[in-house]
Design a protein around this nucleic acid. Structure first.
Lengths: 345, 345
DNA sequence: TTGATTTATCGAAACGTTTTAATATATTCT
DNA sequence: AGAATATATTAAAACGTTTCGATAAATCAA
């Protein structure tokens, strides 16, 4: 039914090889013949058949994108955006991105994504925290992979990460320079490396401006939970305000938590940003629409996806490249929740 | 490097055909030989090569999943969940689901997703509102497709839809039976068929209980906008309360809008659900975590995806099947925003 | 016992590409 | 001019499956 290379070749009076060469922009072909072939392709509405191509080249043409089920199912638009960034970038090289989820309790023998079970990807992107058993599996099978927004302490894997430290530091500086002195940190677990880095930015900014006195950190940080969520943000805010009524700003480990903090602070009867300034991290879409609008660090999610894709491509071209880490900068977006004018000084 | 059918055949002392037959559970093969082949496959860690398979069978093994860019990028977890439902279902038949987005201003000549440009899918799911030009393109090219949560008036396409009418009707009944009498509707545009149906459920429930007097509907509905969003919900709520202070409940066209309505009502100084009950539609994840927790109609998103996938498979098996519509039932979830005890009667 | 049917296996062609090595011609370098 | 090199084209093999039709043995029906 559909036209094949053979049909084109016949009609153009050349061999299949020549057609293939123009298709792939390779080798030498007279510009006159090239034009003729091109126009015949157009005219016959020729589409190269992917499976035949892939069979001949021994490439799969697929990139896997794996995300923990919980992250995709919940309010995490973050990784969907990163996915889109990859998808956009992959359009140029004609890769398909295969999105799938894995469960927390992951066993390579049982729940291996199909595209891994059948060796059907040229590389894999791992979005956020994923089971370590999965990472080890990929490493062991020598399947190229990159971690996105996640790192394994002690291990040296390819990785695209956010500049968590500097982002946090800048957010803190903006709070400090606008006169806030008792700045709390509300985060989920320290377990997540990104959050660890954000906390480090928090701490070192305080140190730089000599704001830390005796038990400042204990009084002002809430990091007891294993996850991050709105509910946890709310709980954390209320708990901290109970411990230390002097708090005049909160830096949150991410926007989701920040939204919870906002409602916690409001329930507590304090005004934002008048009494308390709040800054989140990530710039998820609701940040712009909640009340008050949330100040935050904008993470360029599409860029992250694109960078991860590029890294995977390089890995394909050069399989024994040394593992590298690419760090993506973030922008401080000041919205209502931390306008400095609102603080009375 | 990797084992092929040939290797298996040689080791088992049979022909490639026989190996292929056991691989595909087809034809006759002695159970003894079958076992032998199976165990050799195991032992040699044999994985059939997808591209070779697809080339031979002339199937792509892919299903496209197309969503409007705005829907995926914004706070719409809805269609991501539907995607997951498809992904889960597709695992059994070994289809890959290729997720991509299209822009609003869509031109088949320009922005056709790659998998369509290269005829590289066995079918396509269209999630939510998508450009009509795209639908027409698919129809014209005879590519099997199903619309998800969207319909074209007058056209008879394959479609998996939510039972919008009955859901709305039941929500309204619960409000009415708990004593609410002035029930508003806040929706986006009537343009979207789902919202139209929800509005119809709203209206007919009012009619059944004889609540409609002279200009009840004009006074109580806000449907002027082209989109739905939190901001629009807020605006709508405030506008309606200005027109009609007697309003004691709001049925919203979806949860996103409902969250806006909640903040609008609160800004207006009314209590939820004491003064005003609110019910949304969709049961997106934040519905459970906002304050007050939002009553809503739970749409089984995974089921929708699964059903869409099954429909596409049937379409593949039987290409000239008559177009059909599958309607998925919804459940009313009563949470804080419409507890009936809270209304003082 | 014969002929039909079912069960079991296989050889070879087909699917639509890419790629290698060969051939032929044209161009450039001494 | 001759050698080297660049340009242009091709035939044929390869990629790893599935499937068609053939063949043959085993089972069944009469």
């Amino acid at each position: 039914m559909a036209a094949t290379i053979k049909d084109i070749a016949k009609k153009a009076g050349v061999s299949m090889s020549t057609v293939s060469l123009v298709l792939n922009r390779k080798g030498y072909v007279a510009s006159e013949t090239k034009q003729r072939i091109l126009s015949i392709m157009q005219q016959m509405n020729y589409k190269p058949l992917r499976s035949a191509r892939k069979l001949a080249t021994q490439k799969t043409g697929n990139i896997g994108y794996i995300i923990w089920e919980g992250h995709f199912s919940e309010v995490e638009m973050f990784y969907s955006q990163v996915f889109l960034g990859m998808e956009y970038a992959a359009r140029k090289n004609d890769h398909y991105i295969l999105l799938t989820t894995v469960k927390e309790e992951f066993d390579p023998k049982e729940n291996l994504p199909r595209f891994l079970r059948y060796n059907d990807v040229d590389g894999v992107a791992l979005a956020g925290r994923v089971p370590h058993a999965l990472i080890e599996y990929l490493d062991h099978q020598h399947i190229p992979f990159v971690l996105i927004d996640y790192e394994l302490p002690g291990k040296n894997y390819n990785c695209v990460k956010i500049d968590n430290y500097n982002g946090a530091f800048r957010a803190m500086e903006s709070l400090i320079l606008s006169g806030r002195k008792n700045i709390a940190f509300v985060g989920g677990t320290y377990f997540h490396p990104s959050i660890k880095e954000r906390y480090r930015g928090y701490k070192e900014a305080l140190e730089k401006y000599n704001l830390i006195n005796n038990n400042y950190l204990e009084k002002n940080s809430y990091c007891e939970e294993a996850e991050t969520s709105r509910a946890i943000g709310e709980k954390g805010a209320i708990k901290l305000l109970g411990k230390n009524p002097a708090i005049d700003a909160v830096f949150c480990c991410n926007d989701t938590t920040a939204m919870g903090v906002i409602s916690g602070v409001q329930k507590y009867g304090k005004k934002i940003p008048g009494d308390i300034a709040v800054i989140g991290f990530d710039d998820i879409p609701p940040a712009e629409f909640c009340t008050p609008k949330l100040s935050t660090l904008r993470v360029p999610k599409l860029v992250i996806g694109k960078e991860a894709y590029k890294l995977l491509c390089e890995l394909n071209d050069n399989p024994n490249m040394a593992p590298q880490t690419r760090t993506i900068a973030v922008d401080l977006i000041v919205r209502e929740s931390s306008y400095s004018e609102s603080k009375g000084n």
